[in-house]
């Protein structure tokens, strides 16, 4: 599918538009205040990798097809070109990569052995990046998980933000949260509400 971030009005290209678009300020931030920034990252693709009961076979296939190691429980592994693999459940892993590699990754489905499958879910999730010392404080109000105490770099967790299911991980002192696009207005509403109180 076509993937770019241009606006259609300028060059007659299809407009790629996130559900967060109407919620950002003039500088493209969802939240922009002292010690706290939040913006959406749109240049990633997200593929759902489902595995078989044979972990050796799974690891071998992941290595051969994507050159990445499947992570252990609640963990994240990194591969070349800034790719990441998240443990979601015992037979489900998410591959996060730069959008430009999507077609290439999807073509690897042919290499997967019986019992493994792959689904493109790039448009289903938005990724929010939080920076600043107040991040944990911002999220604590609506998140049941104890980010400050338990979320270390290299770990991924699934939890809820308000009532929205989200996935959270840390990377280079940033916190990243993956959210279903249909919940974007709800989640951003909660974030902005919380930001007022930080």
């Amino acid at each position: 599918m076509v993937m770019n971030n241009q606006t259609e009005a300028q060059n007659n290209m299809p407009e790629f538009r996130s559900t967060f678009n109407s919620l950002v300020d003039e500088e493209g931030y969802l939240i922009n205040q002292e010690n706290l920034n939040c913006r959406e990252i749109t240049d990633k693709c997200l593929l759902v990798l489902r595995t078989s009961k044979d972990s050796k076979k799974n690891n071998k296939a992941a290595k051969e097809a994507f050159n990445i190691k499947l992570p252990d429980s609640l963990s994240v592994t990194s591969g070349e070109n800034d790719s990441k693999c998240f443990w979601i459940s015992p037979d489900e892993f998410w591959l996060l990569h730069n959008a430009e590699y999507k077609a290439s990754l999807l073509s690897k489905i042919e290499l997967l052995p019986e019992g493994m499958s792959m689904t493109d879910n790039s448009a289903a999730y938005g990724i929010l990046e939080f920076t600043g010392l107040s991040t944990d404080n911002l999220l604590a109000r609506w998140m049941s998980y104890d980010l400050s105490g338990s979320l270390k770099e290299g770990k991924v967790i699934s939890t809820t933000f308000g009532q929205a299911p989200v996935f959270v991980y840390r990377e280079n002192k940033k916190l990243l949260m993956m959210i279903r696009h249909s919940f974007s207005h709800y989640v951003v509403g909660l974030l902005k509400d919380s930001a007022k109180r930080v």
């Binding site: 019986e114 879910n121 289903a124 279903r180």
Partner: peptide
């Protein structure tokens, strides 16, 4: 040998 993935938000 079946895997299910929700793709409601994908499309």
């Amino acid at each position: 040998d079946v895997h299910l993935s929700s793709v409601t938000d994908q499309f």
